[in-house]
Design a protein around this nucleic acid. Structure first.
Length: 625
RNA sequence: GGGCUGGUAGCUCAGCUUGGACAGAGUGCUGGACUUCUAAUCCAGUGGUCAAGGGAUCGAAGCCCUUCUAGCCCGCCA
């Protein structure tokens, strides 16, 4: 129960009023108002103005006079505004009680959009030949946040991570290990994924320019990888598994968790592709080209340019691996996989992996009618082709959705630090060239910065507490930077600007939380929720209550639009409103015991609501910092 | 050449889906507030022909069209 109750009450009463006044039915909107215009605002007068041949203000006046006769329980005043809006003022005491009591509950903010229906969210899907850089982090964080938001909207969410362990990039590092003499053990202390990406991959790809014979070696390795039985394939599997294990450490450090790892090598080796291939032929969705530039190839018939699916030498292209996977996710083909436990994650969820070998672990069901795939928007064209093909392949309720996002680039200054002169322009990162910022290194820097700051304010804290706080703040800062803006905005990473802890950042929000915790700690008694809520009557208090009350409206918005930033903005807004309250209202020094208690209730509900909302962003809440 | 996405304050961005009340934050800059529930904070000031032009509308940052501009994508690579 929340602000929504107020909206519902007004809608019901307004409908009665308009019926009585014989105002035609129109689909008016009721929405939270800016504070100087009451609490809820309605545009009905604009919509009916033409039909009634009256000025909007006169209609608003008419309606408000009628509404005023019977205000209901949650409204204290209705007013027409000169502009034509109809403004409603809440009965604060009633609303305070309602919101503050609701917000302390853990399920607060839940909205039932999903009705428990399943949604697959696939994200991360980093090639297992390198460590995560900050571009990958955007994918992980967007995907993980979307998964959390959809769960809050009562979807049954399954999170998949696709491991492309049979691609060219893996072949590259095998060339490095087997033909260029790179040691299989990284130098002391270096993570294996860093070593593979920074050393083996970068230096091996450098060699191709000078040594053309290496490319042929690589192509042979690629073929052996796809076959799966060779020694090279086994070696590849062991290397990619080692890289994957290290990548997952970074993902878990970021607070992202998964349900299942899907390996491309297994999709390739299953019968999925030949099955789909035959079906596509029968349905005339693909075509064999006997002449032209694609002679000898099977191509996808698309509104766009035709896309080669099977090369003239009979091998499948990249997109031909994605189609069976998409079909598998949507349950359009029989499931050829067995499942085994990969590990139990920090959040106590089991992480499964696919396997083609029969085993004793129970069969899992990780498929769904709705699939959201998080991939950067550079791949939009290919993803559209897949979406189009799937919709022709199965015209039922299946929905394959590409959630795209813009890339993370480096500022000119930061590129300079890495030794590249970009002439003052931002630049795309490149794994191949070694031009990227490692994710763990950013977290390490943020942790160090946080430790320095926290020590200044809390000299008495133990080392252990300091590190725990630093970890929470560092992860939060990076995650927040990755989702606070829209998905279609390029993020420019800059060492000095992106590591800030002031202003519109996660630490600002976490700091508000810590302040609330301290008030509750220092209070003489726990809040008693049978409180005198009418005492919370300053704008600092009522503004905070009303914002807390809007949590579920924001969850709904974020879930419907797959927009994580909505929740980020909400959390920031909540923190701002609390900080203003904090500076102007002294909770523990209030005039009398009843006021202290009422305010403690508010602080408690704020804390609970913020924790709840931050949880959707994968941001944890330190009680001191 | 074709396709996708962006262009709002010096800088980074909200607002656009669902048109309506003086276009909002952060940051920067100028000044102010810690013997007080943590100043990672707060308060005040500064700063905008909403890229340009046209159109439909009583009304446009928002909708439609055109243009300019920036980025990305257009391989029998993945």
């Amino acid at each position: 129960m929340s602000f929504r109750v107020l909206l519902d009450e007004i809608r019901t009463n307004l409908l009665q009023v308009t019926t009585r006044l014989q105002i035609p039915e129109v689909s008016f909107t009721l929405e939270p108002a800016k504070s100087e215009f009451g609490d809820v605002t309605c545009n009905i007068a604009f919509l009916t103005s033409k039909h009634l041949k009256k000025r909007p203000y006169d209609i608003a006046k008419l309606i408000s006079d009628e509404y005023q006769k019977n205000l209901g329980t949650l409204v204290s005043k209705v007013e027409p505004h000169q502009s034509g809006y109809l403004n409603f003022y809440a009965n604060n005491a009633q609303l305070n009680r309602l919101v503050i009591n609701a917000a302390k509950d853990a399920i607060y903010g839940m909205v039932d959009i999903g009705k428990k229906s399943r949604v697959i969210v696939e994200h991360t899907s980093v090639n297992p030949n390198k460590a995560l850089h900050i571009g990958h982090v955007r994918n992980v964080v967007v995907g993980d946040t979307i998964a959390r938001i959809l769960s809050k909207a009562n979807h049954d969410v399954v999170v998949l991570n696709y491991v492309d362990d049979s691609g060219l990039q893996v072949a590259d590092i095998i060339v490095g290990f087997k033909h260029l003499g790179f040691s299989e053990t990284p130098p002391d202390g270096q993570k294996f994924d860093n070593y593979c990406g920074d050393e083996v991959y970068v230096k091996t790809t450098e060699q191709y320019a000078q040594n053309k014979s290496l490319e042929e070696i690589r192509n042979n390795i690629l073929k052996e990888l796809e076959d799966g039985r060779s020694d090279i394939a086994k070696f590849g599997k062991s290397v990619t598994n080692r890289v994957l294990a290290e990548q997952l450490k970074t993902c878990w450090r970021l607070g992202a968790y998964y349900d299942c790892l899907n390996f491309e090598s297994e999709i390739v080796r299953s019968h999925l592709w030949p099955d789909i291939f035959e079906k596509l032929k029968k349905m005339n969705l693909i075509k064999y080209e006997s002449e032209g530039k694609n002679a000898g190839c099977w191509v996808i018939l698309s509104q766009d340019e035709d896309k080669v699916l099977v090369r003239s030498n009979g091998t499948a292209t990249y997109i031909a691996k994605d189609i069976p996977y998409a079909a598998w996710k949507l349950g359009l083909v029989d499931d050829p996989f067995y499942y085994k436990k990969y590990s139990v994650q920090k959040n106590n969820k089991v992480l499964w992996q696919t396997t083609l070998e029969e085993n004793r672990d129970p069969k899992q069901h990780f498929r769904s009618n709705v699939v959201v795939t998080v991939i950067d928007s550079r791949q939009a064209r290919l993803q559209n082709i897949i979406t189009e093909l799937i919709s022709k392949f199965d015209s039922s309720q299946k929905s394959y959705l590409h959630l795209g996002y813009e890339s993370v680039t480096l500022s000119a200054d930061t590129a300079n630090v890495l030794g590249i002169d970009t002439k003052g322009k931002n630049t795309q990162m490149s794994g191949r060239k070694g031009l990227y910022i490692n994710a763990d290194s950013v977290l390490d820097m943020l942790e160090q910065k946080t430790i320095d700051e926290t020590k200044k304010r809390n000299p008495d804290l133990s080392n252990e507490s300091l590190h725990e706080i630093a970890s929470k703040v560092a992860v939060a800062t990076l995650r927040y930077e990755m989702i606070k803006q829209d998905l279609d905005k390029i993020i420019t990473f800059d060492y000095s600007k992106s590591l800030s802890l002031d202003g519109d950042t996660a630490p600002y929000i976490q700091y508000a939380y810590a302040r609330a915790v301290r008030i509750l700690e220092k209070a003489q008694a726990k809040p008693d929720f049978e409180a005198s809520y009418e005492l919370l009557d300053s704008e600092y208090e009522t503004n905070l209550v009303k914002l807390i009350g809007r949590f579920d409206l924001n969850v709904e918005d974020a879930a419907n639009n797959l927009s994580p930033k909505v929740i980020a903005k909400y959390c920031h807004n909540l923190a701002v409103t609390f900080n203003v309250f904090y500076e102007h209202v002294k909770v523990l020094d209030s005039e009398n015991a009843d006021t202290v208690n009422a305010r403690l209730c508010l602080v408690h509900s704020f804390k609970s609501c913020l924790e709840n909302a931050l949880n959707l962003l994968g941001i944890e809440t330190p009680s001191r910092m």
